[in-house]
């Protein structure tokens, strides 16, 4: 009886999932990176991406535009070979294909996926405080160009990413993601411009999720 009554009031079922908790180590400092990299509250540009996957005959090419806002996150619009949009913020990841159904994942639902998205977001923001928690970072300068190499420190991350190489001058020009399974994602950025706030025609881009 006693057990029963209290059984009723307290019942917990706990299972556990895996999320990588972040922890800072030293590396490239924010001010080092910012010697060259110009950070504006809003930046936009075009990208060309090629993705090499071992079992495919040729790389997957895609291209489009992006808008990175300090406040609202990263808007990534692929225009070719088909239309798809992605929004990455600290809290969620939202996707929609061909203006169709919206798939949205919160950190709680998809900790791994949103966790990776957070790193992607940090790269576009040039946010060393986030990157230094997961990676050992080194930077090289030549002329007005820089090249930063990020190597995962965490076991879990190492299983997915072998290294990330980010290059640029005033703005980011190239991101190369080397996956541990041999895949390579190479993103080239062109035509970057910065502004203090979103342009009129850009404000709608973040509103669909």
């Amino acid at each position: 009886m006693r057990n029963f009554i209290f059984g009723v009031t307290t019942s917990f079922i706990l299972l556990f999932t895996l999320v990588v908790e972040v922890h800072a180590v030293t590396g490239v400092t924010q001010s080092e990176l910012n010697k060259y990299l110009v950070m504006k509250p809003v930046m936009r540009g075009s990208f060309v991406q090629q993705k090499k996957i071992a079992v495919l005959k040729k790389p997957l090419f895609s291209s489009g535009v992006f808008v990175a806002s300090e406040k609202q996150g990263l808007y990534w619009q692929q225009k070719s070979p088909f239309l798809s949009e992605t929004i990455v913020t600290h809290d969620f990841l939202a996707q929609r294909i061909k203006q169709g159904e919206v798939n949205q994942y919160t950190f709680e639902e998809q900790p791994l996926l949103v966790g990776i998205s957070r790193i992607f977001l940090a790269i576009w923001k040039g946010d060393m405080s986030v990157l230094n928690m997961e990676f050992e970072s080194t930077i090289n300068f030549s002329d007005n160009k820089w090249k930063m190499v990020l190597v995962p420190t965490n076991k879990m991350m190492k299983k997915m990413i072998s290294k990330i190489v980010v290059q640029g001058s005033e703005y980011i020009e190239q991101v190369r993601l080397h996956e541990s399974n041999g895949n390579l994602t190479d993103i080239s950025i062109t035509g970057v411009t910065g502004s203090d706030k979103l342009l009129k025609n850009e404000s709608g881009l973040f509103s669909w999720p």
Binding site: I53, V55, L60, P81, T86, N183
Partner: peptide, 15 residues
């Protein structure tokens, strides 16, 4: 979409 996404990873063995 997943294959083209910049933030996805597809293991060749799974593919």
């Amino acid at each position: 979409h997943f294959f083209y996404s910049p933030i996805s990873s597809v293991h060749p063995d799974l593919l």
